[in-house]
Simulated scan of single mutants.
Amino acid sequence: MLVALALVALLVGCTSGTDTNADTDVAGQGYESGDGSTKSWPALDRDDPVEMAGSDFTGAPVDVADWRGDVVVLNTWYAACPPCREEAPDLAALATDYADRGVHLLGINSTDDAGAAQAFERTFAVPYPSIADPDGQAIAALQAKVPVQAVPTTVVLDRQGRVAARILGRADPSILRGLVDDVLAEPAPTP
């Protein structure tokens, strides 16, 4: 009898441990997970500039048009999103490392109230603003130029404000830096 119970316990332990997705399953967590896929557009194939303006979570105005001539990285996020939390330190480091090279980061948050968003920004020492987008206007402006099919989604805009690259899901820091470096290496637009 003791041997039979031990065998049942062993079998139950093996079957419950065979679901390798149990800890990583995102079903029911409230976000559409991206696969980290990347798409880039050659300069000649890029559409018109992204027009996006709003207010950050302190009420200060933000307009990507103010950064024309520089490279801009846009990132959709919200505080309870696990991949957003994972990539936040990498994005903060990118913002700091590239600030003097003419690169600006801007978050877009359609979900959180100011308290949750500002707590996230403090926790991860986020040095760049995020547009508070409860009505979805900033996402709609971006969606008009490039599909935003997951949160997080990261979009790199060239110096003219046009979509140069997109990452669906958590941005791998080395891939994102490579995309930014590629856009920085492009010739500056002629006035």
Rank of each mutant, 00 (worst) to 15 (best):
M1F: 10
V3W: 11
L7H: 00
L7N: 08
A9K: 03
A9H: 03
L10D: 11
L11R: 07
A22R: 14
Y31D: 05
E32D: 14
G34A: 10
T38R: 08
T38D: 09
R46D: 10
R46F: 13
D47A: 11
V50M: 10
G54N: 02
G54A: 11
S55H: 12
T58E: 03
V62S: 10
V62W: 06
D63G: 06
D66H: 04
W67I: 07
W67E: 07
R68Q: 13
R68D: 07
G69W: 00
G69Y: 03
V73Q: 02
V73A: 00
L74M: 10
T76A: 08
A80H: 04
A80W: 04
P82K: 04
P83C: 13
C84R: 01
R85L: 02
P89E: 11
L91K: 02
L91S: 12
A92C: 07
L94Y: 09
D97T: 13
G102F: 10
V103I: 13
L105W: 03
L106R: 02
D113A: 07
A114I: 02
Q118S: 15
A125E: 06
P127Q: 12
S130N: 12
S130C: 08
D135G: 12
A138L: 00
A138P: 12
A140T: 11
A140S: 14
Q143L: 11
P147N: 03
V148R: 00
Q149I: 13
L157G: 08
D158M: 00
G161T: 02
R162N: 10
R162H: 06
R166A: 15
R166W: 06
I167K: 13
L168V: 08
L168G: 12
A171Y: 09
I175A: 10
R177D: 11
V180M: 07
D182S: 08
A188Y: 08
P189I: 14
